[in-house]
Design a protein around this nucleic acid. Structure first.
Length: 260
DNA sequence: ATGGTAGGTCTCCTA
């Protein structure tokens, strides 16, 4: 039985609960992983999603900042959390389904403006976060596992509107893209979007600061779905819902979806 | 090279 899994940085779940409903109705994924919910667990509008068939949820909420939430139509056997860098940030939640499939929902730090670990503590945090994933969490190859979310890194030249213009911009520096590639290679993770679309521009985020996001089209692919090799073989389809960036009061990220 | 917008709020911090 196929399973469809989506990821979306929603930038406030309470402000955009109607957008989430609309997306769930049209795309109908089995699982939706949200990032930047900016909401404590007690205030999540979960009943709204229950009515649409998402009876199971796993959340790590936080007031004002971060926050991850995974909605599921399928029963969740186990939920776990990682406290990356020991900061207590709500940036990860993992669910395990009845068949043993594990889905890690991550919100990797954005990293601030200056791409220098000595001058910018936020960039240092981002680098340490990914180092920790590489050295401790995913240091060995895994099976039946999906890692997804807002990674805040556009790894390939075709993941940004201008490779040259963004080489010194946080999200596309060589330090970040090299580290992400090392993490990927260490666990033999497969970027399922690039499996289906090996070349050509792909974006999942467009800045709020453009006069017209569609006309300027200065996007970046910051959101990713990675699968362990056994699962990646069964990857059937990948979609980016770019049109959602044009909805009323949109998030700056759009949903991405994979079918296995 | 610069400055542009959005969300939640500890009216500033984060993205």
């Amino acid at each position: 039985m196929p399973i469809s899994i989506a990821s979306w940085n929603i930038n406030s779940i309470r402000l955009r609960q109607n957008s989430v409903r609309k997306f769930l109705k049209t795309a109908n994924p089995d699982i939706l992983c949200l990032q930047e919910t900016k909401c404590i667990d007690e205030l999540l509008p979960l009943s709204v999603f229950e009515k649409l068939g998402y009876q199971y949820a796993a959340s790590r909420g936080q007031k004002s900042y971060n926050g991850v939430l995974t909605l599921s139509k399928r029963e969740i056997k186990k939920t776990s959390f990682l406290d990356m860098c020991g900061k207590g940030d709500a940036r990860h939640v993992c669910i395990e389904l009845m068949d043993g499939l594990k889905i890690h929902n991550f919100y990797i730090p954005a990293g601030g403006d200056i791409p220098d670990t000595k001058l910018n503590e936020k960039f240092n945090h981002k680098i340490n976060f990914i180092e920790e994933l590489k050295e401790k969490i995913f240091s060995h190859q895994q099976k039946k596992t999906v890692i997804l979310g807002d990674f805040n890194i556009a790894p390939l030249p075709d993941d940004v509107w201008s490779h040259k213009a963004l080489l010194n911009v946080v999200s596309h520096t060589e330090q970040e893209t090299t580290l992400l590639r090392e993490l990927m290679e260490k666990g033999k993770w497969v970027d399922v979007f690039r499996k289906h679309f090996p070349s050509g521009k792909l974006y999942s985020w467009w800045s709020y600061r453009a006069r017209d996001w569609k006309i300027s089209n200065r996007g970046r692919r910051l959101d990713h779905i990675w699968a362990s090799p056994d699962l990646a073989k069964k990857s059937k389809e990948c979609k980016i819902y770019s049109n959602i960036r044009g909805w009323d009061r949109p998030s700056d990220h759009v949903p991405i979806l994979s079918v296995f």
